[in-house]
Amino acid sequence: MRTQAALHSLGYEDYLKLREGALVIEADRYGDKVLLLPDQSYIKLFRRKRLLSSAAFYPYVRRFADNVQALHARGIPCPHILALYRIPHIERDAVHYRPLVGETLRRLLKQAPPPEAEACRLREQIGSFVARLHRLGVYFRSLHLGNIVLTPDGELGLIDVADMTTRQRALGYLLRKRNLKHLLRYPEETAWLCADGKFLTSYNHASGFKLSA
């Protein structure tokens, strides 16, 4: 299902006004990628990387919006979209959104690692959460602890969801296995996730599959 949200054309002066006072959160050699606005909302900028690309027919900004819509429909916490823009002057599309409130698991583990008993519960929760995503047909190529958020209510949710596809039925074994490899591609995070076997045990229990790291 594709979003019906309008893609508004935004003039350069209006873009400068919208981003006034913004903090650059992420950038590369091509320019700004993520901006934090003074009202704590975000602008994520997308560029077409190749002249001939599927992005010409299905822009990344649309994919982001569609994936947010799909996650909301499945009850998965995620950002809230405010507007979609095309900014011809800088050859970018942009999504303006309210972030999912909480802390990414990557930052949480680096800044304030939980005690072992709490870490065990969190690994179990992550296993159940990933199994739920797969059961709901969500295949997230950028699945890693930097894109999983622990909310103040203790729920897990997703951010940065442009690189995601959804299906009407649960994922099969091979897609589940491939997606777990994405999650477990960072050695330090993999060591933490698999420290006591709770993550995979929880995933397998919730999914009915028997997968290994």
Rank of each mutant, 00 (worst) to 15 (best):
N179S: 08
K110Y: 09
E91K: 14
R92Q: 14
Y97G: 05
Y85T: 12
V130K: 00
S53D: 15
A131I: 01
T190H: 10
K17G: 02
N179I: 06
E155S: 07
L35W: 12
K49H: 14
D14M: 01
L35R: 14
H182Q: 13
E188V: 10
L35I: 11
A195Y: 05
V34N: 07
G197W: 03
A56F: 07
E13Q: 09
S53A: 12
R86K: 11
E124D: 09
P115K: 02
A213P: 08
G75I: 02
R167G: 08
W192I: 02
E188F: 03
E188L: 07
F64I: 07
M164A: 13
Y60Q: 15
M164H: 02
I87T: 13
E13K: 03
R62N: 11
A94T: 15
E188N: 04
R19A: 11
G146C: 02
V161Q: 11
L84R: 07
L174E: 14
Y173W: 06
F199G: 03
Y12T: 01
P79N: 05
T190Q: 12
M1S: 13
Y85E: 10
L143Q: 06
L171P: 11
L109T: 00
E20W: 04
I25N: 04
A170L: 00
Y203V: 07
Y15I: 09
Q69M: 09
A170D: 01
R29N: 06
R92K: 14
A73G: 05
H144L: 04
A191D: 15
L156I: 04
L36D: 07
N204H: 01
A22H: 13
L37V: 13
L183E: 04
G127T: 03
I90R: 06
R63T: 12
V95Y: 11
R62A: 10
P152H: 04
Q4A: 14
L143K: 08
E116V: 10
A195N: 05
P152C: 03
T166N: 04
A94H: 14
V130T: 00
G75F: 12
A73L: 13
H205M: 09
L200Y: 01
L45I: 03
L35Q: 13
R50K: 14
V95L: 12
G11Y: 00
L82C: 02
T3N: 08
L150N: 01
